[in-house]
Design a binder for these strands. Sequence first.
DNA 1: CGTTTGCTTGATACGTATCAAAGTTGGTGG
DNA 2: CCACCAACTTTGATACGTATCAAGCAAACG
Lengths: 236, 236
Amino acid sequence: MTSKSARGVVLDTIRRIPPFTALRDAEWQRLVPEIAIRSFPEGVFLFFEGDPPRALYVLLEGHVALIRHTAEGRDVVLDIMRPGSMIGELAVLEGMPYSASAKTLTEVRAVVFTRDQFMRLLQTYPQMATAVIYDLVRRVRHLSDLVQSLAIERVEQRLARILLRLMKISGEPHERGTLITLPLTRQDLADMAGTTVETTIRTLSRMRREGIVDTMRGRILILDSARLTHLAEEGR
Amino acid sequence: MTSKSARGVVLDTIRRIPPFTALRDAEWQRLVPEIAIRSFPEGVFLFFEGDPPRALYVLLEGHVALIRHTAEGRDVVLDIMRPGSMIGELAVLEGMPYSASAKTLTEVRAVVFTRDQFMRLLQTYPQMATAVIYDLVRRVRHLSDLVQSLAIERVEQRLARILLRLMKISGEPHERGTLITLPLTRQDLADMAGTTVETTIRTLSRMRREGIVDTMRGRILILDSARLTHLAEEGR
DNA sequence: CGTTTGCTTGATACGTATCAAAGTTGGTGG
DNA sequence: CCACCAACTTTGATACGTATCAAGCAAACG
């Protein structure tokens, strides 16, 4: 067990992300033994909407979708969380049930704090509040964009926007363009765009016919991001 | 000039709202001379989307709408701010242009901090961050609800929800029901529901025919809030 | 009192949901 | 390893909700 054990390497990474950069070295050293790192497979829920706020997660690797479920069985994707962001903060901060479910889109590694633990940390190290604030600010901005998109744009435009965002989040260079590495079904995309699977498929098929994207089962390849940007911004 | 001057009375009120409750008396006394209270008439903009983040407002009286404008001339109402909430925080915190415009829906009284002033306050009194956090949490919750509503509900259902919210925000008892005191045009409601004036009018007219609401120019009276709740929750 | 602003109704077109059915892929267990 | 099952994808036909365009009306305002 050297100082550069697997855990040691991960801790070095953690040290550099927002909630923890605020700490002084002495504080950090005191915190280290408390840090629980956990891994989750793809496609599982960290928590469900309505659950009591047991834990807060700081995402280290992978992606997590925040999802609302409706009584009629439809889902709405509120946001996709990337490494460095906090998950479950609203519920933990207010002591209220989670207002959305958190589902892993990939394998995930995260620091897990119990509610008590995190609240204590926040009291002990008020500088950590800054990280919470910037995380919330990012979410407000994203949700505002989403509201605007849902309120005034048509499905094609919304999907174009979503594809561009996914490209930024998880795009990987590919010989013919950029591959979106997140494994998303048509239903997932529909839940992000506030539409149905069928409409999503028809829209994506049109984009494929026009050479804007290429699609495989669960994978999307962006061929012409310029056209896509045009679609997202001009609407046609 | 007694200690209970007009300004003194207002200061007592301010002392009791979130960003300031966090301060100890000595800190508060030091802050008092810095506090600038300003009034604004109905229908003016505190700032426009894209403006540099000059000031942050803490709303004392009245209501303010956060509005996004689109290139095609459509507006989207992101949120309605009530007394006690902060306006312009995102921009001020990040030092980026305001991401929405703020328009007074009524006469408004607010504490105005310059960006520098507020950032300095936040550094000096880190407890104030708590107020910022809870304000942001409220906004995330509201925007999440709005996203869900826009993504899966039809106009009638969305409008029912909006009317119920307006009733909570600014409802006043009335002999036949509850009067929404905020002066909102049909266009304003349309901008909140992500629809057009015409559709809003048709939907409101149907509600009037069915005895759920009564409408006058710029005023709405809720007659049957139970039916409205049913519409908002069951969709019919 | 005329003019602007907000409200209302009607006719029509378009976008998207819904329902139905069949094809495809990947994984699992026999 | 293959067959089968479940999950995902696709296409078509149709209905419905809402946008759009057009026009007239009512109320506030200077």
